[in-house]
């Protein structure tokens, strides 16, 4: 049974989430402050953490950063204000996904499952990656969709491989640019639009269901049927 830690200052919301997520088959703990949350995260070693960014005692981002110093546990960030800057900052600081309040319980459950599954399979030294029907051979820079070889340029392949390595997780534009193009390209946002467009055409994914984009935040490779695009 997956162990979920929810850190939020709204006791009512904590109660609802406990009831709901338990019904979905999770083991749930809650914490009402950032400090309690950090302590729970360290003692109980949850499989996934749901973290509200607006905590009374400390900034949720700070909680996220501190957890990241000693744990790779998936972190799903909740924000009440829906501001894009905060989302991007949270993702850059190591969060895996985010949701804006209010959210449905089924959606929360789906995202927790995605985080749990992909966190389990991803490793840096893997030579081959599978996301849905997409198969990537990292050693030979070869991509196949449903057995058919895709004609990708080197950068297109790198872009796709980066997203595949973090499948299910929202990658901010800066993260992608810096690791695919290099640190000095961190602000060339228009590259991504062009490449995402080209890759989608080659994948036959013009609607962006597989290579999902979240305007002014980033991109995510999502196995079909798991989660609908954010926007």
């Amino acid at each position: 049974m997956p162990r979920v830690l929810i850190i939020d200052d709204d006791r009512d919301l904590l109660n609802v989430c406990s009831v709901g997520l338990q019904a979905f088959g999770h083991d749930v703990w809650t914490a009402g402050t950032g400090h309690d949350g950090l302590a729970e995260a360290a003692i109980r070693a949850p499989d996934v953490i749901v973290l509200d960014l607006g905590l009374p005692d400390m900034d949720g981002m700070e909680v996220c950063r501190r957890i990241r110093t000693w744990s790779e546990v998936p972190i799903l960030v909740l924000s009440a204000d829906g501001s894009e800057d905060r989302k991007v900052d949270a993702l850059d600081d190591g969060a895996d996904d985010y949701m804006t309040k209010p959210f449905g319980m089924r959606e929360l459950n789906a995202r927790l499952r995605v985080s749990l599954r992909h966190h389990a399979v991803v490793g840096e030294d893997q030579a081959e990656l599978d996301v849905g029907l997409l198969h990537l051979d990292l050693a030979h820079c070869e991509a196949k969709l449903d057995g058919r070889v895709l004609d990708l340029t080197a950068k297109e392949f790198d872009f796709l491989a980066y997203l595949a390595r973090h499948a299910g997780k929202v990658c901010t534009r800066r993260m992608i640019l810096e690791s695919v193009w290099g640190p000095q390209y961190g602000k060339e946002m228009h590259y991504l639009k062009v490449y995402a467009y080209r890759i989608r055409r080659k994948l036959g994914d013009e609607g962006g269901q597989f290579l999902q984009s979240d305007p002014s935040v980033g991109y995510r490779l999502m196995p079909p049927g798991e989660i609908k695009p954010v926007s």
Partner: peptide
């Protein structure tokens, strides 16, 4: 936005659980 979303979040989470 924050104050309106807080009660909304609880309502949505509860109602989505109940209606499932």
């Amino acid at each position: 936005a924050h104050d309106l979303r807080a009660p909304l979040a609880s309502i949505k989470a509860s109602s989505s659980t109940l209606s499932d």
